[in-house]
Design a protein around this nucleic acid. Structure first.
Length: 203
DNA sequence: ATTCCGATGCGCT
DNA sequence: GCGCATCGGAATA
């Protein structure tokens, strides 16, 4: 199945799982960087209270949710961090997958420089905020078609679909404010055994 | 116009 | 484990 078809699917939780292992590539400020997605979370609006598009909320910020599957959604969190999401689902159905960590595959020196780090360590790109720093992603990359080969930010099908046993499933991070019902949903996924995962001890 | 607060990360204890 | 930076979106008035 091609990526566009996958991302257009009805079930963002399934898509979040399938995105583990897919490559996220950027060509920003004249530098190429990329990594394999190791950690994701699904956001299932309109029902999901943890989503910015809860209840079909439609404002300038949530506009990307109503674009076609494969569109980027980048927003500012805590006034500091740029968080990168992939819009999924049939057009007009505001589903999204938050990318929380990647394992670098291209442009490590560039990423190290952007992170002001000397040597390659997992904290280079684990966590949704620092992942964007490493890849050079900011709100300037909001609302891009991630499946367009001309786009400065792209999703590229990688080593093929992951085996289910290789992926761990847990509740999502940092959404207690959405209430216990939504905070408990096991909609976070990460590659089993990888060092490129945020908050490994959270559960 | 004002207020509230968040899908985080880092440094310090 | 804890405090806090930092700011824009969204709701309220």
């Amino acid at each position: 199945m091609d990526l566009r078809t996958l991302l257009s699917g009805e079930d963002p939780v399934h898509i979040a799982r399938q995105l583990i292992g897919v490559e996220l590539y950027t060509h920003i400020d004249g530098r190429e960087t990329a990594g394999l997605i190791t950690e994701t979370e699904a956001y299932w609006a309109p029902d999901d209270r943890a989503s910015h598009a809860y209840g079909h909320r439609r404002t300038p910020r949530t506009e990307p949710f109503y674009a076609r599957a494969g569109t980027s959604y980048v927003y500012l969190c805590y006034g500091i961090h740029e968080l990168f999401n992939v819009i999924t689902g049939p057009q007009g159905v505001p589903h999204a997958v938050l990318i929380r960590a990647i394992e670098p595959t291209l442009g490590v020196p560039t990423m190290l420089a952007r992170r002001h780090m000397e040597s390659l360590k997992p904290q280079l790109s684990r966590g949704p905020g620092v992942l964007s720093l490493a890849l050079g992603i900011t709100r300037a990359q909001n609302i891009l078609d991630l499946l367009d080969a001309e786009s400065p930010v792209q999703l590229r099908a990688g080593a093929g679909p992951q085996v289910q046993a290789d992926v761990v499933c847990t509740p999502r991070i940092g959404i207690d404010g959405a209430g216990p019902e939504w905070a408990a949903k096991p909609w976070r996924f990460y590659r089993s055994g990888t060092q490129y995962v945020s908050r490994l001890n959270a559960f």
